[in-house]
Design a protein around this nucleic acid. Structure first.
Lengths: 339, 339
DNA sequence: ATGAAAGCGCTAACAA
DNA sequence: TTGTTAGCGCTTTCAT
């Protein structure tokens, strides 16, 4: 088992390696058309296959970029990934995906894997605000092309693109209030997720605007999984806490909340409304009864790609933090809409 | 943006590159424990990341194997792939997946991609009996580690593992006859798929065994997609051809057949029974009303892995063709079962 | 238009 | 135990 090399072709044609290399690369201005033809057909004849490991070593580029996502269960990630692929394929890039499963250790391994594989750039949605901060800081300091999307790292001087969490969640809670809700549960994300804080902040501000008293029992810290969301709501019910709406940090939590309510035969949204920020339009099929504000994922992906390419092409381009003022389209309906 | 190299570490520690390389590789018998420690901590301190492109070029191995499948819609492929991954991960191999979408052109591109990427071996389920035969022949001739599974290439001297199509389909048709069916449709696969022939052959043999006359109108050549299956059955109905069972070449066809029957309000399996060979046990959830014979996919995957590793490790190991005499478990039921 | 030569970062003989 | 050296296959500058 031995591959044909450009040297083999060069020897067979009694020309130099460099000419073969040029011919194969289609360097029209430096190789005669006749030679190009001879080389090309010889290569085909001999079954030549370019050795990418050698090319990558030599050119110091792989034309591969990596995406690291915390999870792959919501449509958000899938949608983001496929938009990135559509955008980068025409530019000659391949896209590799790695899932961290909400685990900073895994995230670190994924970063390692992409670095040892010498990907040309990384798009990452972070699992944790602190855990891998040092790692990310080093990456940025060494000028490695990396762009954060959706879930960022607090105060890190690195390009990023995300939604305007504060504003959007403010409008969501406001929407609940407009539609007659008063006892609104806030399923917050873990404090180690940067977005979590902003969204909870907005919850308080919306309440204040409408002079609704803040009840700490309604603010529940919950994990990110469907199970976590389900359990949190179950605990509220068991504790006999009265509520007429749930504002969730993530889609997965919303899914869990919905499950618990259905198990308890609590009608949605007549008795309790659920709302969250949603990854994609697709989600409306998954969560028909859940009011959601759509993030523009495709837009986010395209911006992320643009920022990354800029970094790859211009090694010292400035860091940019883009905040998406997405169209605020509240979908679904709460019974109070009709009132 | 510049990566730390072993030379950087060597210079910083004022030792040679080779010692650094050995220390990093954990070559305990050739490097003093003290040196290993010094090197390791220096590497961490400097943020060293192994350059796999260089390693792969030097060692002429990537520890990556590629799987090429014609489609990824049935559970068969997913199941096969994940079993392979589970088997190879502990051995230090990564697994890459490429989908040909039933298109020989795509298949060729996938082969090219894997070769230029210098994967250590390829597992392939072929799209077409002839289209890429030359390509496969060259691969085998050059002694490249490649193993076929499920869909093979006729008369190609290459290791492979597949089910006993003839026997299993014979039993399936026999099962239909036992349960009272007489006018059995045979949705054959395209002739360019090797397995197609064997399965249709068995259909005839089963009929002959029970002295049921062969009716050529009941034998319909159909594409592989769900749509193809649906259209084929629609045509039969429109042509006023009478039948009480459909024997499909693939799961996807069976799914299409089911759809058409349901649209026409023809009850399954009371009026018309559907049967096919099934990729996995999972399929029973997808096709509750379809009688199926399970192939042992996990077993097939493990054997494929074994054959491939043999080829990778022993460059000149003999070709082996393994036929899986799977446990014949007909699932689902036809109404005639009760009769 | 073509060739000679250097070197990407690493491993693995061979030497010491 | 450590160092020296060669070379994996390719691209690219510099000569010609």
């Amino acid at each position: 088992m031995r591959y044909v090399t450009i040297k083999d072709i060069a020897d067979a044609l009694e020309i130099s390696k460099s000419t073969v290399s040029r011919a194969l690369a289609g360097d029209v201005s430096n190789v005669s058309p006749a030679t190009i033809d001879r080389v090309r057909s010889k290569a085909r004849e001999m079954g030549y296959q370019r050795n990418m490991t050698a090319v990558n070593l030599r050119t110091k580029a792989t034309k591969v970029i990596g995406i690291i996502v915390p999870e792959i269960t919501t449509p958000f990630s899938m949608s983001f990934v496929s938009t990135v692929q559509d955008a980068m394929q025409p530019l000659g890039y391949r896209v590799l995906i790695a899932v961290s499963s909400e685990d900073p250790k895994r995230e670190r391994q994924n970063l390692d894997m992409f670095e040892t594989g010498r990907v040309d750039g990384i798009l990452v949605s972070a699992t944790h605000n602190l855990a891998n901060r040092d790692r990310f800081e080093n990456l940025v300091k060494s000028n490695f092309p990396i762009v954060f999307f959706d879930r960022t790292i607090k105060d890190l001087q690195c390009s990023s693109v995300c939604s305007n969490d504060s504003l959007m969640s403010f409008f969501l809670v406001e929407h609940l209030i407009y539609t007659g809700r008063r006892r609104i549960v806030n399923l917050t994300g873990p404090t180690y997720i940067e977005n979590s804080l902003a969204r909870s902040q907005s919850y308080r501000e919306a309440l204040e605007k409408f002079h609704i008293p803040y009840d700490s029992r309604l603010v529940v810290s919950s994990g990110l999984s469907v199970e976590d969301g389900a359990m949190a709501v179950e605990r509220l019910i068991n504790d006999g806490i009265d509520f007429d709406a749930i504002y969730c940090f993530t889609e997965t939590q919303a899914l869990g909340a919905k499950r618990t309510l259905q198990e308890r035969n609590i009608s949605i949204p007549d008795e309790v409304a659920i709302c969250t920020m949603s990854g994609t339009q697709l989600s409306s099929f998954v969560f028909p009864q859940i009011t959601a504000v759509e993030q523009n994922v495709a837009e986010m992906a395209r911006i992320a790609v643009r920022l990354l390419l800029e970094k790859i092409e211009v090694p010292n381009s400035p860091q940019q933090n883009i905040v998406l003022h997405s169209t605020l389209v509240a979908r679904g309906s709460t019974s109070a809409d009709d009132a």
